[in-house]
Design a protein around this nucleic acid. Sequence first.
DNA 1: GTGAAAGCGCTAACAC
DNA 2: GTGTTAGCGCTTTCAC
Lengths: 340, 340
Amino acid sequence: MSRKRSTIYDLATQAGTSASTVSAILNGTWRERRVSAETAERVLALAHKLKYTVNRQASGLRRKRSGLIGMMIPMHDNRFFSAMSQTFEKLARERHLYPLVVSTLRDPKLELETARTLISYQIESLLITGATDPDPVSRLCTHHGVAHVNVDLPGTLAPSVISNNLWGAQMLTQQLVQRSRPLAALPATHPRQRLYFLGGIASDYATAQRIRGFCDVLQAASPNAVLPEQINPCGYEAERAEAAVADLHDKLQGLPRALFVNSTIALEGVVRFLNRLPRSAMNGCVVGCYDWDPFASALSWPVLMVKQDTGKLMGKAFELLDTDQLDPTVQIQIAPSLVG
Amino acid sequence: MSRKRSTIYDLATQAGTSASTVSAILNGTWRERRVSAETAERVLALAHKLKYTVNRQASGLRRKRSGLIGMMIPMHDNRFFSAMSQTFEKLARERHLYPLVVSTLRDPKLELETARTLISYQIESLLITGATDPDPVSRLCTHHGVAHVNVDLPGTLAPSVISNNLWGAQMLTQQLVQRSRPLAALPATHPRQRLYFLGGIASDYATAQRIRGFCDVLQAASPNAVLPEQINPCGYEAERAEAAVADLHDKLQGLPRALFVNSTIALEGVVRFLNRLPRSAMNGCVVGCYDWDPFASALSWPVLMVKQDTGKLMGKAFELLDTDQLDPTVQIQIAPSLVG
DNA sequence: GTGAAAGCGCTAACAC
DNA sequence: GTGTTAGCGCTTTCAC
């Protein structure tokens, strides 16, 4: 069926011309080579007939450009990162670069190995998105002359474009304070009058920023210090969050004034618990979630959500690559928006 | 910083040996070449020191193998397809193939163009997932000798691995019938005693199969024919589904015995509408959804969901590639499972 | 206006 | 045991 793939030499022979002429015609540079329109047409027709396709391994090798741009993400199966992939593809194609998206499962070893493989395929630039340990990847890229930018999580050896987690958490906390009311039946100092932060891992960069934003606003709003028990970075799993909120409910003998849930996955667990309570138990408890999920906006009670701006995050990252601004001290913060 | 990338010639010169020896050492084939362990070690150490990385464009060109395997999906930003991507990556890596995932936005032109580009990068095989028009892509692959399999949506020119939509719809419908009760307050012939199908596009392969499964079960269960108004493939958008269910509720003066919602996106709209009703209105209405979303399982009322088996779909597709079973008449159906 | 030829970095015969 | 050499398919001088 398909013997050998045809090459420009096959085309040249069959069209009665030379490989270099065919190459110029196929690349669109034949006008400046002043190839006769007649030859050009003949070759093009033949190429079409034989369904000729360039071998980009060969042309890339010769030109020292692959036309490839890579992006590493922690995982595909996640709303935020898959939105990033979608935007990445769009922006890459606009620049006539072919997008390679690979997941690295939050594993620093895999991050490094992935970068190495991408480099071996001669990618021209790399977006390091949500990497656990971006600096070693930076070092590798720099050594091989690959332009790169950190996205979502900052690094110290390349410019970083990140979501403004501090600001987002402050906005969300402010709204939680504003939209919730002190529980009239209880004394002002009752623990249920406080706001609680749930989910994430305290040592993670994003979680740390969000906790800071949460505390900033609470401390500014009231003279009382934020108590340690108001902050529970219990991890990202839905089960952990479900247990944490059940525990909180148990200790407080009811729901608090408001809950700051630090990821949609944690929110799943929280929602599962809340749905087991009688509906009236929700009265007065306002729920906010850092990160957005379309389903969460369809729940029977409102959830305030922080939606990260994937378009701007990616857009800015490409802008840095486009203009060759690769100053490692640059850190660009993109404001998320509040939904619901 | 990074002048020229070092090549095997650089390594050879600096290690005082030849390029072919270096190549053999780097490829692990040096034992059969009986290179002295001493030389091997020296070269390896040097390669490590210089952070040498192969140029896979060059080695691929020479070997006529790229080590690349491609997959086309309609979009990244979707639970089902992003789960497919994640599994695809895993299975590709297990086979020492480098995974390329690209989205084609349900655009037949883009599907073909994407396939062409992937082929120009010399991919060794291609998984055509959820393609609107898979056969032209098949033709292209066949012409260039690229092994390929259709996944999720069948084609006629390559083997297909698809979800058993008919069976899944039958199971879901059966469960909806079993778990719902006739509304005691109404006559047996009242339209609210019927089940309704909502969402999708009637001409889509998957939707057509699901409608068939829905009707099969209903017709077997009762002597009454399924009425045209029980089937409303109103599209995939949440807004359309929301309007459709509102309209249905209006016409029936209440909710029907059960609803078959044909996608999680449509379910979002349905949920939005149902949450606007007083809670008691839900009484007796059982909701099922073809496709799965973790959030939907956290709603305040149960949703029966059909979860497609991405692991088996991908696993089977790779199995066909592995064993070179590329008979275009083969069509493998993978049973989904019922959740909730 | 067009062809010949060199070479991108690598691998695999084939020498010795 | 190891080096020499001939390409893989393409682009790009350079020559005429």
